[in-house]
Amino acid sequence: MSEIVIKVKDLVKKFGNFVANDHLCFEVYKGEIFGFLGANGAGKTTAIKILCGLSKPTSGEINVAGFDAYHETEKIKKSIGYMSQKFSLYEDLTITENIRFYGGIYGLSAKEIKLRTADLLEKLNLTEAKDKLIKDLPLGWRQKLAFSVAILHQPKIVFLDEPTGGVDPITRRQFWNMIYEAAHNGITVFVTTHYMDEAEYCNRVSIMVDGKIAALDTPENLMKTFQVENMEKVFLKLARG
């Protein structure tokens, strides 16, 4: 298929005697929406931290955006974007201040920041609200803005950790439209979610159980393999073991 942007071979991560990631193997392609599912405690967060260059693997070969996860973590960090439900933007800064802050961190020039800010505000219909503090924005707006900020520096890959938790169903779909658009423009999207219908929006889905990848395929193939009609049932079959 197309270019590989994440390559993971035999990733192992141990905390003492506990094996959080047990020989994970997978590849993610450019422009793909890759769903990374698993029950609480299955080892998703551990793996994501390694892929983002925040934690070192115990063993295995891991390459993200062309960089090695042992020695080139700083380069990895520059090539990726990240947002989660828990942490996204600074609540006490305004919309424009947040954009400027993130743009600055990722090394965009003042001119670029100005241009991209105007674009972004217009696209999200936030031009009039640009001087509002983040804490005064409804959750749905915040999450859409956080996603836009996470891809402001046009990263190769964006990691989304439960980006839509608690968001109303209409906003949740607007959010997914933005994900589709980003993927369409060549950004690889690596996403975790507890909403099983969202798993079906992904090109491919991996499901982790007890530190291992128990299944990895397109949603359609997974449903066929497990002979069920939706991803929730696939998940229940696997995770209940």
Binding site: G38, A39, N40, A42, E162, G165, G166, H194, M196, E232, F235, L236, A239, R240
Partner: peptide
Amino acid sequence: TTGVDAVSRK
């Protein structure tokens, strides 16, 4: 059940 996986939710 917020933030709890599909199995535990069920």
